[in-house]
Nucleic acid binder design. Structure first.
Length: 595
RNA sequence: GGUCCGAUAGCUCAACUGGAUAGAGCAGCUGCCUUCUAAGCAGCAGGUUCGGGGUUCGAGUCCCUGUCGGAUCACCA
């Protein structure tokens, strides 16, 4: 039973009967804490049909509901707001249906498929804080869609070719002395990143040397020997030169094993990987077809363009005059390939930073012009940059926060604080380590996901390692507390059946607050998925944990003499633990049995 | 310069898409551990929602305008 919908139907009946008219939309919202009740009907819009003042309208509907519906115990009216107190036996019945559903939170399969892309790094340096927000978001949105009944395909496109990786290759060839992850003990992605930095350092020195001799900046950047080597490698790679390809394969291999370790630590995964080196030529064919179809046009120098001025945008190049493809060309090809690989997907979600909004606007327009209906169902999940207290992350200034380092620090901090609180008594080493990881990563993920994805956010290291207040560990802690209660209940052989629940004579306010939250969970899940916003779930989970803690602190469960109340409270605690675990799961956060 | 985002308590963020006296956390102050876990709970203090107009029963939310941030507008990715 959906309480919200049932209430709406009851109110519709009341309006129809009282004013002999029906209204399409009712404004039913949660009641403010300061007033009694759980649901509030906003009556201002109804004055049109009631021909009464707002207060009179509210009173009329309230009286009718109390007299006829049986769901409403009493009501109060504040200005035009009708605050409804739902009868306790109705709450008990609604709760019983939630309690009976072992899969509460998981909606029925809808037969639809969708693809979510996230991560998609370059292969010349390790993952950083920005990638963490990207990965956690993409993973969480995938989980949201799964729980809404979709079959989800998680993918990424790995930017494994291009001048960036050639720079690392060039520097390694010149200065590497055959250094490998094995010989140096450095994680593969970090090793390749090290040579990317080496490249930059030497490149700058060479440019300076040249400009000191009077060469122009632009010319010096072209002439710098190390840059020439990188460009030469890119050319050789495209010509499939075996030595270059072998070096490329080796260094990318190092990066992949490094990335895999990082993804594993992060707790994210992918169903299929796309590599730019496999797909970068694909778009070309489609673009040429588009020229034949007169969707695109060719300029005198041979370059191919799309004219988007009728959509308020500019002209965009799709193939260079030398026939090589650009970023957009590749993305066109990759998109088409994915819909061939997964013909049943209704759309794609691209988890990419907001600096690429223009790019995706153009991409989707082009795909639409090429006649692909699914272009309408492509969505750019655009998220804001992560800033540091010192400002923007800049690799050149060495202010980039490394993903591996950050996760390690978070876990160490979790260990430190957990030990200080003396929380590891009775845990084995393995259990304790698992707990530290759960808490450290839980804090990090929650910190990055609790903010609306669209918004630019500040990452304050000191605040992120907080384990109190609006944090992941606070919610994990609430879960562990409930589990302790449930263990005790089990030893006392207390367990509830659905029919025990309807016997509850009366509810405490804090219990009604919890029931309200529990029964609106699936609605929240849908809202979060529609908005592509894990933040909705993070806020909900926090509110639920906080509300439960209020209950926990004011009502000692096992002191209750009334057996039906006791059973009800155990059952309610059980469902809160289940929903917390489920909601945190949607955020990619695990919850402990004790902490 | 064009386009698009953003500005809410000292700090970090909410506000169910137009509803009540704008809410949390952190930081500060005050209480609560012979009880199921104090990583908790209760309370105090903190606001011209960037400025100025407008729309209406009602605006942090919608429209206009100004200020200040940011992104983007490459034959880069």
């Amino acid at each position: 039973m959906n309480l919200d919908q049932t209430l709406r139907a009851e109110i519709q009946k009341a309006v129809k009967s009282l004013f002999n008219q029906s209204v399409e939309q009712l404004q039913l919202q949660p009641t403010n804490q300061e007033f009694e009740g759980s649901h509030t009907l906003v009556c201002f819009p109804l004055t049109k049909v009631s021909k009464l003042k707002p207060e009179e309208t509210a009173n009329a509907i309230g009286n009718y509901l109390v007299a006829h519906s049986g769901m409403i115990a009493r009501f109060n009216v504040v200005k035009g707001f009708l605050n409804l107190v739902v009868a306790d036996n109705v709450w008990a019945n609604v709760f019983a249906s939630v309690y009976a559903n072992q899969q509460y939170g998981q909606l029925a399969a809808n037969g639809k498929e969708i693809m979510v892309e996230y991560s998609s790094p370059n292969t010349n340096k390790p993952l950083h804080l920005g990638h963490l927000r990207n990965n956690f978001l993409g993973y969480s949105v995938s989980e949201l869609y799964k729980t809404c009944g979709y079959n989800v395909h998680k993918v990424q496109i790995i930017n494994d070719r291009g001048i960036h990786i050639c720079k690392s290759m060039a520097a390694w060839k010149l200065y590497g002395n055959d250094e490998t992850p094995e010989s140096s003990g450095i994680k593969g992605d970090h090793l390749v990143g090290k040579y990317y930095v080496t490249f930059d350092k030497n490149f700058k020195a060479q440019v300076k040397e040249l400009t000191d001799k009077g060469v122009s900046q632009e010319e010096a950047e072209k002439q710098a020997p190390i840059m020439q080597l990188a460009v030469d490698m890119l050319r050789k790679w495209e010509a499939k030169d075996s030595e270059t390809v072998a070096l490329w394969k080796m260094m990318n291999g190092w990066v992949y094993s490094g990335f895999n370790a990082t993804y594993k630590k992060m707790g994210v995964d992918f169903d299929k990987l796309y590599y730019e080196s496999d797909t970068y030529l694909l778009g070309k064919e489609e673009v040429l077809k588009g020229v034949d179809a007169e969707v695109f046009f060719k300029k005198e120098d041979g370059s191919i363009w799309v004219d988007l001025t009728s959509d308020g945008l500019d002209q965009k190049v799709l193939l260079r005059s030398d026939g090589t493809s650009v970023y957009m060309t590749q993305d066109i090809g990759t998109a088409i390939l994915r819909f061939r690989d997964f013909p049943k997907i209704e759309g794609q979600v691209y988890t990419v930073g907001n600096e690429q909004e223009y790019h995706f606007k153009v991409l989707f327009l082009i795909l639409g012009r090429l006649g692909y209906e699914w272009a309408k169902k492509c969505y750019h999940l655009s998220y804001g940059m992560v800033d540091l207290p010192t400002g923007k992350m800049k690799s050149r200034e060495g202010t980039v926060v490394d993903a591996d380092d950050l996760m390690t620090e978070m876990i160490e901090e979790a260990e430190k604080q957990t030990r200080e609180l003396g929380k590891i008594e009775g845990l084995s080493k393995a259990e304790a380590d698992e707990l530290f990881e759960m808490i450290g990563l839980g804090a990090l993920k929650f910190f990055l996901l609790k903010v609306d994805p669209k918004k630019r956010m500040l990452f304050d290291p000191n605040e992120s390692i907080q384990l109190q207040g609006f944090t992941g560990p606070f919610i994990q802690y609430t879960h562990a507390r409930i589990k302790a209660i449930l263990r005790k209940a089990a030893t006392m052989n207390i367990s509830a059946q659905a029919n025990d629940l309807s016997n509850v004579a009366s509810l405490e306010p804090s219990e009604r607050d919890i029931l309200y939250l529990l029964t609106t969970y699936e609605q929240k899940v849908l809202e979060a998925a529609n908005l592509y916003s894990p933040a909705v779930i993070a806020n909900y989970a926090y509110e639920l944990a906080k509300t439960y803690n209020q209950f926990y602190q004011t009502i000692p469960i096992f002191n209750e003499a009334d057996q039906s109340k006791l059973k009800f409270r155990i059952a309610m605690s059980e469902v809160v633990a289940h929903v917390i675990k489920h909601a945190m799961g949607l955020l990619g956060i695990r919850v402990p049995e004790r902490m």
